[in-house]
Amino acid sequence: MKIACLGWGSLIWKPGRLPVAWGWKEDGPQVPIEFSRVSDGGELATVISLNATPVPVFWAWLDVDRLDVACDALREREGIPAERCDGIGSLLIHNAPGGMLNDWARERDIDALIWTGLPPRSDSIEGRVPSVTEAILYLDSLAGETREHARDYFQRVPSQIDTPYRRAIKHGLGWD
């Protein structure tokens, strides 16, 4: 089975033990991504946010041949507890109904596709998307190492993940 993983944040520059076979490719599908999850490290992480504008994400082949092994590797890398299955998304292509991700994967001869499926989070509420103003105020309220970590994360997210929040944060905080 040929399995690939989608990525749009730190997974790209810090895959950890995720068995990425040949590096990340830039021609991924369009996915609605936004800087809308206050993560445990303090950064405003990129996640799938259904009302966001779709942007082209990255993808990579995984050096595994079983979907459960691929999902476990991604869950471990992301620090998602095994009992929380909703933190990983997957699509078994040959059984999936038609759709943009399915069509994109079929064009690349991918049998299964996985991604991190954590929801937006703001004010400690899972699923809550901060407004762009709240996002800027949150980041601007950070200090010291937490602020530096958040800024580093923001700057390392590949420029093709060009979202409205990214542009507003650049303008509002001067983060390039």
Rank of each mutant, 00 (worst) to 15 (best):
R84D: 15
G98V: 12
D109W: 05
G87F: 06
N102M: 03
L92P: 13
S122H: 14
P119Y: 07
G99W: 02
S124E: 11
G99N: 03
E126L: 08
A82M: 07
C85W: 15
G98I: 13
L91E: 06
P130F: 06
L92T: 15
A105P: 06
D111R: 08
L91H: 10
P97Q: 10
N95M: 09
I88P: 02
D109F: 02
P97W: 13
A105K: 03
R84W: 13
R128T: 03
I110M: 09
G89V: 07
D103G: 05
R121N: 07
I93H: 13
P120R: 06
P130S: 03
L91T: 07
A105C: 04
G87A: 01
R108P: 07
S122V: 04
L118T: 03
T116K: 05
D123P: 05
I93P: 12
S90Y: 15
I93R: 12
L113E: 00
E126I: 08
L92M: 13
H94V: 13
A96N: 09
R128E: 05
V129I: 15
S90D: 09
T116V: 05
G79Q: 10
I114Q: 00
R128F: 02
G99I: 01
P120D: 06
R106D: 07
D123F: 01
A112I: 04
R128G: 01
I125W: 07
H94F: 12
D123A: 11
E126P: 04
I125C: 06
I110Q: 12
R108I: 00
A82W: 09
D109M: 08
P81H: 07
S124A: 08
T116M: 02
I125E: 08
P97G: 13
D109Q: 09
V129Q: 11
E83Q: 10
N102G: 09
I125D: 04
D111W: 01
W115A: 05
N102Y: 03
R108V: 04
G79P: 10
L91R: 11
R128W: 00
D111S: 12
G79K: 11
D109I: 00
H94Y: 14
I80D: 11
